[in-house]
Simulated assay, not measured.
Amino acid sequence: MSEQHEFAQRMSDLIGAIYDCVLMPEKWGGVIDAIRAEFNFHNAILSVTAHEGIHLLGALVGVDSYWSARMLNYGSAVTDAWGGIEKLTEYPLEEPVVQSRAMPGYDLEGNRYFVEWVRPQGITDAVNISLEHNTTTLSNFTLGRHGSAGPITDGEIEGLRMLAPHIRRAVAISQVLELKTIEISTFASTLDTFNSAIVLVDEDAICVHTNAVATAMLNAKDPLTLNDGRLALPRQAATAALKEAVKSAATGPLTSPPRRSGIPATRRDGTPMILHVMPLHRDILQNAVAAIFVSPSVASPQMPADALALLYGLTPAETRVFEMIVAGQTQRGIAVKLGLAASTIKTHLLRVFEKTGCKRQTDLVRLAASLSIPL
């Protein structure tokens, strides 16, 4: 077996384990520890926190009790080490950002968290992956590099970039599920205890099972409906995206980025909803290949960026670059503002061109204008 094939298999195993955490949140610690070890980092922190400071989900590995007990003493100094909360929220979602590259010349000597907590443990660099930053929560996955491991490599960044969208989706669904643990032996009955709608479907998006909330939505045809047994949404584009996501969950390789990780829908009273599709890789119910979790969105979809992401399958990082290009910023300016390499911005832009069929930046501006009204 070639080294490349072995790496792909390890990535597939990690992604499967990430999705297992949705149903069994107590596994998060072991999974992020496996990711830490795979890419030669010293510690790893998964943090999902409400803006009110309420801790919703988290795991910390590679840090002994002495240092973990002291971590809570530093408050805003932790985010200040990354340039502050405003800088953190500017980073594209799912994009691994290397601290030393994003903040060259930044004086960390004045930061208590770095001086008293990071450096004494021998940590010399870090990677942060923003998973969510919205009106209610701030979610990040951060890995610290020990000085003895050498500089963070581009290959390691590519590997983390492969895992990032799956981590983000799993964390989002975990929040939808209110972090309850599901026993596989009583899966169907346990689904009825959740406040969110949950639908299990086969690879053709035909319903296999619905929990009580989803059944009520289907009976009211708001916003879920059935078309010849297949799950559908009011907007044709959203239905197409849902079918694509289910097909990808059923047949696509786990190492591919998840498509349509947040599919928007709207109830008749105007309430914005989000659908998350999670592949099922265990024998839960016959023919079920994906679970669809439906919950209220934290905010109404923003146009045209959300529409572009929906219609063309752009990643959050590609969407962010698109937004900034349309706003008139240069590739070099975007790289500086986001703390990313110019080559990374160019790669994202080329993928935007490829997915949208545009050839020039002016074409993107016209496309944005055409999507300035809701679908």
Rank of each mutant, 00 (worst) to 15 (best):
Ala216Met: 08
Val213Phe: 08
Phe194Arg: 04
Val171Met: 03
Ile173Ala: 04
Val199Glu: 02
Leu218Tyr: 11
Thr186Tyr: 08
Thr181Met: 00
Thr186His: 07
Gln236Pro: 06
Glu183Phe: 06
Asp202Ile: 08
Ala237Met: 10
Glu178Leu: 09
Val208Pro: 02
Leu226Met: 05
Leu177Met: 07
Lys243Ile: 15
Thr225Gln: 15
Asp228Met: 09
Ala240Lys: 15
Ser174His: 05
Val199Met: 00
His166Ser: 06
Ala216Val: 11
Gln236Leu: 04
Glu178Lys: 04
Met162Trp: 07
Ala212Trp: 06
Ser185Cys: 09
Val213Glu: 06
Ala240Asn: 10
Leu231Lys: 02
Thr225Leu: 15
Leu179Thr: 05
Thr190Ser: 12
Ala164Phe: 00
Ala172Asp: 15
Ile173Val: 15
Arg169Lys: 13
His209Phe: 12
Ile173Gln: 09
Ser189Ala: 11
Ala164Lys: 02
Gly229His: 01
Asn211Gln: 02
Arg235Tyr: 13
Ala212Gln: 09
Ala241Asn: 08
Leu191Tyr: 10
Ser185His: 13
Asp204Thr: 14
Phe194Tyr: 07
Leu218Pro: 02
Gln236Lys: 15
Asp192His: 03
Gly229Leu: 02
Ala240Leu: 13
Phe194Ser: 00
Thr239Ala: 02
Pro223Glu: 10
Gln175Asp: 08
Thr210Leu: 06
Ala164Glu: 10
His166Pro: 10
